[in-house]
Amino acid sequence: MGQLLQYILNGLAKGSIYSLIALGLVVIYRGTGHLNFAQGEMALFATFGAWWIHDHGVPLLFAITLAAALAFVGGGVIEFGLIRPAGKKSPFAVVVVTIGLFQALNSLSGLLFQGAGTGLPFGTLFPNKPNDFFRLPGDAIWRYENVGVLASVLAITGILFALFQKTKVGLAMRMVANNPDSAKLSGVSTTRILMLSWGISALIGAIGGALVAGINTNVNLATMFGVFLLASAAATLGGLDSPLGAVVGGLSLGVVESLVSNYPKDWWASSYVGADTSVAVAFLIILVVLLVRPAGLFGSSRVERV
């Protein structure tokens, strides 16, 4: 029992980060139907930025905040300067641009930040000494770091949901997502909303990147590969246009990953079964879900057509 709880708790922290990156994907997908393949690398670049700012003597929390704010602006600039012109050509051109951006941001990170290949030390925002944990029934422990990551992500998610549901700009985002033509006819500048969506997506990506780097105590050029893979799986599982689906999808994939990468090891005393298997199992689950429900768990049926 304690063991199971332990694996679930570990999985929730990682899973919450998948949720965050998945939310970033969903925010963009809802507006345009585009999948942003550069989502992970945009987050990575911002995380290196946070590292650099911190390295220049700025406290970590402020460094991450500043990097996230810059990412917000950067996301808007990317939409305006790259995605919008490409979108006027064809949807396929957008795919090519986001894949190119993926490559470019990764290479640029390697060029700009000395030691990015092997990794740079990254601090955590939460107490992380060996005995910084809550003791739970059955010998399970909940590390403050994992609690902190989960709580931060849930707080950010709560703010995002309030933005979508309670504010005028959130209403405009829902209008554009549901019916772009009627949104225009109601007075929404859809181009401005799309720019904003990319900004928000980049901002929450930056926070997600910093949280991953905090858990790993390190940021390197490969940090976001696996995270992006699972986050896009989470978004697909949740239904691509559903913020709630992204959150549920991310958390459940985090837990599944944790269970799959730990239990076989316990049973067969084999350390061979590990992260790769968990990704495979995660995708197997998604395959099954999509066979049964093509729109994902929470997606509107419009997603089926894509």
């Binding site: 829902r174 209008m175 549901n178 009627s182 949104a183 007075g187 929404v188």
Partner: peptide, 16 residues
């Protein structure tokens, strides 16, 4: 109409 939005939100959308 905005089919995924409530009737009330559709009207709010109209008043954007």
């Amino acid at each position: 109409t905005f089919t995924d939005l409530s009737v009330a939100d559709n009207l709010r959308a109209g008043a954007y």
